[in-house]
Structure formats: structure tokens, C-alpha cells
Design a protein around this nucleic acid. Structure first.
Length: 174
RNA sequence: GGAGCGGACCAGAUGAUCGCUGGCCAUGAUCGAUGGGUGCCGAAAGGCAGCGCAGAGAUUUUGGCGGGAGGAAAGUCCGGGCUCCGUAGAACGCAAUGGUGGGUAACCCCCACCGGCCGCAAGGCUAGGGAAAGUGCCACAGAAAGCAAACCGCCAACAGGGUUUUCCCUGUUGGUAAGGGUGAAACGGUGAGGUAAGAGCUCACCAGCAGGCCGGGCGACCGGUCUGGCUCGGUAAACCCCAUUGGGAGCAAGGCCAAGCAGGAAGAAGUUUGCCCUUUCGGGGGCCGCGCGAAGCGGUUCGUUUCGCAUCCAACUUCCGGGUCGGCUGCUGGAGGCGUCGGGCAACCGGCGUCCUAGAGAAAUGGUCAUCGCCCAGCGGGCCCUUGGGACCACUGGGAGACAAAACCCGGCUUACCGGUUCGCUCCAGUC
RNA sequence: CGGGGCGUAGCUCAGCCUGGUAGAGCGCUACGUUCGGGACGUAGAGGUCGCACGUUCGAAUCGUGUCGCCCCGA
């Protein structure tokens, strides 16, 4: 196991639309104080599943679980766990961890425990029956949506998801 | 030694290692405004193709250097800076404040003092203007709750009765606020005079009120003295009155890029639509026109209204399309910290010197390990000393490590909090 | 950032504006009724009015502070 692992901002979900995309895929697994949502990553150009791209994660800790200090403590603990377990997670996916309740595990044993829990949940949700098919149909629908420009009024299609699948802008001025 | 009062300060330390974030420097990669030069078209202006020569800058890789939460960053309770909104002028309303003087950019803040209350004291608390402008309220109890009033009682007269001298009982009328009892609160207190009985009815002293004068103080107020009428309840954190203050919105403010000196549609020349009636001159009603319309009928920040002044009129307004859930900026050097000197009782102010000390944006300042440090208990060691205690050192075991995380920036207030350091002072006990 | 509302019996709520007695429904307990239960009838218990300080003779009510919860707008 690789102990030294970078964790730059490109490995995190940075904007609300990315969080919404994962939540609206509606695939989750829960265990203990955590709920983990998963969503396969897409290649922007082709709309197919990109199994090679690195894993990205996001953390959601609402005010329900405590004050700012408790929320920050959870986020740091989970970021550290992701950093350590990064190579053991199934590639080509975005994950969002929601903290439900509970005290923050402390010490080395607590850190190991959170780490193992995240890996187990991630493997459980991606190995579930229908995960790959759903990802494929989703990808296919996205390609068809990308072909016909700006028919966004489909209620099944989240607007930010189609925006994510939009073809890159052609170069201007050349 | 014990108990207590007031103030100031700290918010575990060091090291190793793995990370995050933004700054600077170097470096590789990708993109690249613009410039240069080449070819073609053209009379020219210029256009097109294309070279990859220079290159601001953007994104990113790797490496190095140095920086990275608080005393409350919190609650968002006040006050300001800053930004935008024609001007924020007047009136009404609304809201806030409420002893005096000062500090301050400002304050529901701070300092000093005055009055009141609490404490043996050091000290603490204090929404502390006006109740003889007006209105309201004061449950229950009580005769009566605010300006007078007679339930019991007391006294007098008259009538009747008992006895028939005094006296007693009943009733009616009148006088009386000294006594009773109720209540949170009952119309000054004590004494003397006075009276049929009583009463500030009169007098002395005291308390209190109002006014005048003298002295001290910038002032709140304090001290003294004289006069007056004799006493006039409480509540304004009830309405209210008085004085003072307050324009509104908020960094999601605001500006720039995207964005092309700008695509489409509708509205829109109305100086308060026009006419008639009525009016307390504020306005109200009817009819016509525009409008789908009971709305509305110039606009100009704002969730109080009206008025005044100013200004704008298509270069305007609204909607749709386009764009967008983005990027850059505002964004941290400031009523700034520390030291020192001077002024001031103090809050604070001024001069000089010196320092630079967080800028995130699904939101950084962390994880792990080791050592030291803190508290408690036990055992051991020597020391102080009056039996019995005290502090110190070493070891072992156990425990605590709180509250709470910047979000434009400051000054305060309030609240939360494991503990620790230190200064000054008060009371009590003991010894010399 | 700005604005609004609510904490009262085990539960859902009145009472607060205009201060003096805390109340309703459901639930709970006991008894009656019934063969038994439900329903019904009678009686009863149960509340620091979120907390603290103040104003007042007197506070659930008025004022200030504070704690918790909910909602709305940008």
C-alpha cells in the first residue's frame, strides 16, 4: 500500500453542479455514520464511461451533525481517509460521502476504521447489479442529448448533467 | 493561614514524517492576445492563406524558500467605515435613547463624578427625565383605593320605652377621620392646648413638599437659612408629554470580462388622461378613452405617507431571445500592533521610533508518532518545624487537555469555557 | 446578509394584546356498567408556563438578556 499520496483539488468535487450530478444518479450505500453516493465519470467528448480517469470525491456535512468545529473535524478525517485509501477505490467514479451523525473517530485506530469503511462502501455500490447498465444507458442518453443541441426541457435529464456532457467549445477566431 | 474583591495576561511546547492552501523564484508542457516576416487578391484601405520568428498573459508539472484561526473568530445585539441608490430638504408617523460632565469616527460603548440600594470592608448593582398637561388602572379584602367617603365606634339634639336623680335601650337627624379591623398602599409623627366629641383647629419639635436667598461645584448635586400652605398615594419596562438622535439598502453592495458601437417584440409624447358634479380644498363620485381587467393610467433607491426642489424623455421601459448557475475584481496596510516620551484622576489624545501579521470560496491552517509540560493518589528520600503538617525530588498508577473555527473590514456589548500565570486591595485568626 | 414566528399537563393547543382564578380536547388512574373488552357515565391525578434578571403590592402575561426549534426573502 502506498502511504504517500497527494490529494490536490483536482481530485475533489469543487462545485454544486458536480455534487448534484452524483446525487441525482441515486446509487448509494450506507454503513455506520456514513452514506456514500457513487456515479461513474464520463468522457466529455464521447460521452462514454471513462474507466481510466482518477477518482474524485466530495464530502457533505450538514449543520445537523454539529457546529462548525465538528463539521470541519469530520471533513478532515474523511479527506485524510480518502487520501490514504485512494488507490484502493474503483477508478472512473465520483463519490460523495454524507455524514449522518455520530462522534468523530479519533486516533490511528479510528482513522483506519473510517478508511476501511469507505473502501467497503465504494466497492459495494459499484459492484451492485445494474450499476454498469445504468451507467451505460445514462451515457447513451447523454450522447443523444449532446447530438440535438439544447433540448433541455427533458425532466429526466438534470440540466447540469447535460451541461457537463456538452461538446467542448470550438476554437474561436481560427 | 483562611475567606473574599478588583484588574492584566496565556490559551500546551519541541521534534520527525505525510498532507492542504495561497505568495515569490526557478523549471517542463499546453493554449495563446498582439507584433514580425512570407505568399496571393486589390488602385488603395485592407482581406485571405500560411511561417512558428518574438511574445504579454492563462492553465498545469516538478523543485526550492518563507506565511497560514480566536479571546471570544461565536451570537448577530448596537455603532461606524466602504459601496450603490436624483437631493436626502420639510412635515406627519415610526423606532431608539433618557442623572451630569467628558472620551470617541460613532454608539444601547467606555471613563470620572452625583443620587439611590446592597455589603463589616475591599467593592458591587443601578431603563436614574416628567405623575400640581391630560387619560387609564389599582384584583381579593375593606365603610372607603383617589377625592372623597360614615360600617363599627364617639358626641349632640329630638322622639319613644325601661328606671324614673344619675343611667340604659331603640329610632331619626346632624357633627366627627382620634380609635377598630382590611390591605402592597388608608390622607404626616410625638407632645401640649382646645372641643359636646373631635380634627393642623392652634402651638412647639421632627419628617416631607413648594418657593426665595447665601455658599461650594462647569454641571448633576451638596451644605445652610428664611418663608409659605399645612400634607398634596402608586403606576409612564400603561397610553402619553418633553428632550435628543435616526434617508434606505447591503460585499449575494458595487465594478469588469463573457458581450458582437448590440438580435426580435411590445409599450410609450401622458407636464399628474379628458369632461361634468361636489368639497371641510386633503379629496370624493359619475361618464368617456387606453387596457383582458374589479387594478392602473408618467418615471427616478427604499416594505410609512405626503409635500418641496432637481432631473429625464427614447439614446427610455418591459418582455423574449442570447448568455449564465461561470471567471476576474472588490480582498486586505488598518480609527493597525509594539516600545518610548508628553498631556489628562481616567477613558483617551498627541509626538517619535519600529514591525507587517491569514485571505479560503463544497470553503485551506490538518493526520500520525515520540519526548517534555499540567492535575490527583500511593510508596521512598533528605529538609523545615512545637505534637502535626508543609513544600521539594525520583518512581508507579490514573486523569484532564475546554469553549469554539475567519468569510468585506473595524469599535463595542452579550454569551460559552479545561485550566494556568501575575499585580493591587479588604476582612478574620495566629506569631514576633 | 436581511426578516418573521413558536417554546404552557404525556400529546395538540387556548389564555398574553388589556398583569391578580392556569384551562380545553385526546391520553392516564380509580369506580360503575358488561359474562369479558370497547364505547358510555362519575370522580381524580398530572404543569419550575424554556431559563435568568428586572419593573410592579403582585408576572404565563410587561421589559431586557439568553437557550432551543421552525419558516421566508436575496
Amino acid at each position: 500500500m502506498v502511504t504517500s499520496q497527494r490529494f490536490p483539488s483536482s481530485a475533489r468535487l469543487n462545485r454544486p453542479s458536480e455534487f448534484a450530478r452524483v446525487f441525482e444518479f441515486h446509487r448509494s450505500a450506507s454503513g455506520g455514520p456514513l452514506v456514500l453516493y457513487a456515479c461513474p465519470r464520463m468522457l466529455r467528448s464521447s460521452g462514454t464511461i471513462d474507466a481510466e480517469s482518477p477518482v474524485r470525491i466530495g464530502i457533505s456535512a450538514s449543520r445537523r451533525i454539529g457546529n462548525a468545529v465538528v463539521r470541519n473535524r469530520w471533513k478532515r478525517r474523511l479527506r485524510e481517509a480518502f487520501r490514504m485509501a485512494w488507490s484502493r477505490l474503483p477508478a472512473g467514479n465520483d463519490f460523495v460521502v454524507v455524514v449522518r451523525a455520530g462522534r468523530v473517530p479519533s486516533g490511528a485506530a479510528g482513522a483506519r476504521q473510517v478508511e476501511d469503511m469507505i473502501v467497503a462502501l465504494a466497492n459495494r455500490v459499484t459492484a451492485r447489479v445494474g450499476y454498469a447498465e445504468a451507467a451505460k444507458t445514462e451515457a447513451a442518453r447523454r450522447v443523444s442529448l449532446g447530438a440535438q443541441p439544447e433540448s433541455e426541457r427533458n425532466p429526466l435529464a438534470p440540466p447540469h448533467a447535460s451541461a457537463k456532457a456538452r461538446l467542448p467549445k470550438p476554437k474561436r477566431r481560427k
